[in-house]
Design a protein around this nucleic acid. Structure first.
Length: 187
DNA sequence: GTAGTGATTTTCT
DNA sequence: GAAAATCACTACA
């Protein structure tokens, strides 16, 4: 079953925890892609200095201030995109960054999307989508998908009835601020 | 195996 | 002008 908007319209840390083990599905032009979410990070409120929402509403982060259940995709480091899921109520900046997934279906499509022409040695199937930039590249997601709903095809998260109870918490990756928050969940 | 660094562009100061 | 929610390549152990 597709997770409804009401699932996302709850406290961000709770949603992040329950997203582990669910399937991120994208019915791409090339075919259906499915992956199990195994790493997420939360970005919550205007007090979270590591969050784009901390500096107030602007052109890039406006989706974070919108209602729950939408995709927030932004461009970073000149070459990568990151996919977030917007949570909680409208006007409150909060989102969950999908950091890593395990490919389930459409692995060949993901591989061709990533088109790693050079090094096939260091790229094992496990490393295909084990980073936020890689997930977007494998799924073919760009800022064209920014603000797209996650509650209906082609892009949505499928509930697996699986509840991950053994996961780890740690500080977030790739940021320099607010590292005291253990808002990264993975297993 | 780990450690260090270049790529590249959007956005804010 | 500088930093950024990253990744892959190179060098060295």
């Amino acid at each position: 079953m597709i997770l409804p908007a009401s699932f996302y319209a709850r406290p961000t840390l709770l949603v992040a925890e329950e997203l582990l083990g669910q399937y991120l599905v994208y019915e791409s032009p090339q075919g259906k892609l499915v992956g199990e979410i195994n790493e997420v990070e939360s970005y919550i409120g205007s007090d979270d200095l590591a969050s784009h929402g901390a500096r107030g509403l602007d052109q890039r982060n406006r989706i974070m201030f919108g209602p729950a259940g939408f995709a927030y995709i932004y461009f970073i480091y000149g070459m990568y995109y990151c996919l977030n899921v917007v949570t909680q109520e409208e006007h409150f900046p909060s989102a969950i960054l999908i950091r890593s997934i395990i490919p389930i279906l459409g692995t060949d499509i993901m591989l061709s999307n990533r088109s790693l022409g050079k090094s096939t040695k260091t790229t094992s199937p496990k490393q295909l989508t084990n980073g936020p930039g890689k997930v977007c590249q494998a799924y073919g997601l760009t800022t064209k998908h920014d603000g797209m709903p996650l509650t209906c095809p082609p892009l949505y998260i499928e509930s697996t009835d699986k509840k991950i109870t053994t996961f780890q918490r740690s500080s977030r990756i790739g940021i320099s601020k607010a590292q005291e928050h253990l808002w990264r969940f993975h297993y």
